[in-house]
């Protein structure tokens, strides 16, 4: 598609950085040690730009842009931390906490959860919005893993890893809006899925306590999605 990528120079939070034209603002920031919060992004998976945590301000535009999908451009001036952005990010987190049932104290991901971490780093000490408290099931039908919809933030990392990396396409979404639900195959119990290879990738990439390894309940073992970059490097090497 694109010809040879060109080198672009831009400014992120006052720092001059250079990046290749096929890189996103997020790539460029990370390479230069500038951290931008993310939830739906994961190195090695396609981007969906869905969580809006990574929104940044671009000089000359009132429209906020998601850093994970916006390609760098020559002369771009990016600001990643402004009171406005921080306010919006806090609200995204609050909305997530109020959307489903996050009871951290009894959650398998307690103290090693992407959402909980972000709440702490963004200073979310309470949620101003009414808790919706939906009634949601927990699917424990799989021999080794479980899915607790109460903790799912619908980031679709599991959907993407299963589809793009494992090639099983077990996960998908059903319904829309706040009623969206992660389903396996044609809305069957996970344990009865014909496609799941029990590889466990979805469990490792899930940022929250929604997908977990039954043997690790309370085992206080952090998830490890690092295998993704390894797999991708392998692929690149093979090409």
């Amino acid at each position: 598609m694109n010809p040879v990528p060109a080198v672009k120079t831009l400014v992120i939070d006052g720092t001059d950085v250079s990046a290749s034209s096929d890189q996103t603002i997020l790539d460029a920031a990370q390479e230069n040690g500038i951290s931008i919060p993310t939830l739906c992004h994961l190195d090695g998976l396609t981007e969906v730009g869905a969580c809006r945590m990574c929104l940044v301000e671009l000089k000359g535009s009132t429209k906020l842009q998601p850093a994970c999908v916006t390609l760098v451009e020559e002369g771009m001036e990016v600001t990643t931390q402004t009171p406005r952005l921080q306010k919006y990010r806090r609200m995204v987190l609050e909305l997530l906490f109020a959307e489903r049932n996050h009871v951290c104290s009894v959650c398998v991901a307690n103290n090693m959860c992407g959402l909980q971490d972000q709440a702490k780093s963004h200073g979310v000490t309470h949620v101003r919005f009414p808790y919706r408290s939906p009634a949601l099931p927990v699917d424990v039908s799989h021999e080794r893993f479980a899915l607790d919809h109460n903790r799912c933030i619908l980031c679709t990392r599991c959907v993407r890893v299963c589809n793009e990396i494992e090639g099983a396409h077990t996960w998908d979404l059903l319904g829309r809006g706040v009623n969206s639900l992660l389903i396996s195959d044609l809305h069957e119990p996970w344990g009865e899925s014909d496609t799941c290879t029990s590889c466990g990738k979805c469990v490792q990439v899930c940022p929250t306590g929604a997908l977990f390894d039954k043997s690790k309940v309370g085992g206080k073992e952090r998830k490890n999605p690092d295998f993704l970059s390894y797999l991708n490097d392998m692929r690149e090497g093979l090409r």
Binding site: V48, G49, A50, C51, R52, Y88, M91, V92, L95, L96, A98, E99, F129, P130, R132, I153, L154, L173, G175, R176, G177, V178, N179, S180
Partner: peptide
């Protein structure tokens, strides 16, 4: 009618 993909619209309209 929100598709549910992004959080502000999915959870924000409900709130």
């Amino acid at each position: 009618e929100s598709c549910g993909k992004c959080i502000p619209c999915r959870a924000g309209t409900a709130q």
